[in-house]
Amino acid sequence: MISDLNFIQRILYILERYGMSYLKGAGTTLVIALVSTLIGCLIGFIVGIIQTIPVDKKRDSVIKRFFLRLIQILFRIYIEVFRGTPMIVQAVFIYYGMAQLLNVQLGMWTSAFLVVSINTGAYMAESVRGGIISVDIGQTEGAKAIGMTHFQTMCYVILPQAFRNIMPQIGNNLIINIKDTSVLSIIAIVDLFFVHKSVAGALYTYFESATIVMAIYLTMTVTASRLLRLWEKKLDGSDTYEMADSMDIGNQMR
């Protein structure tokens, strides 16, 4: 009987019987977290970029200004709503609400990706906006002075620098998502936390199973943060540079 075993033995016993289930659960967690962070970043960039489009009262047409304002207000509402409510409630609201109100039966997978993505998007939108306005105004002026439009200035000068500045935020969001997908078990997504609940419930081994799950979550988050750090380093490039000799310059000339 499992109650005759000591703590370590019990963990080994659980792993032997349910190891694959934990791994599958962890895989589900990782997929939802990665994909949703990616989509969330995309949403965040689009919203953040549109939020920072300047309005030129003199040169922009009334229609353009009206629609820009309207979209900016809608985005503002989106950010406030999804930042200001718990993801667990959003999951229930969307999964059940869509079915009852709009008669659209979203699959639980679609709901899961949707909830985590738009949640991440709301946070990222603010990070992106912050990243954009934190780039020195001189960079914008330098770009405008050589004739760049707002769009070109953003693409080539501001966003690459803003992106580097918000890299830690992206990492933060990924780590938060790896952990917070656990709330999706409320809509019956079989993620790592769902597996834990099933195993612990079946064997009455809450502490042992929680230990295993803690270790798996930690492994995933630490790996993610290390990998992102490496990527950041790569983006920063080398600290040194090569002096070009006449050969290089000649090659460039050709």
């Binding site: 960079q139 330098g142 002075a145 050589i146």
Partner: peptide
Amino acid sequence: PAYRAKVGMVFQNFNLFENMTVLKNCMIG
């Protein structure tokens, strides 16, 4: 923008693009 392309400007604080090399700074425009 088209007008500004014809009128160059040099700033007190340089305003070189920090995300580009010297060569790229002079090419991008």
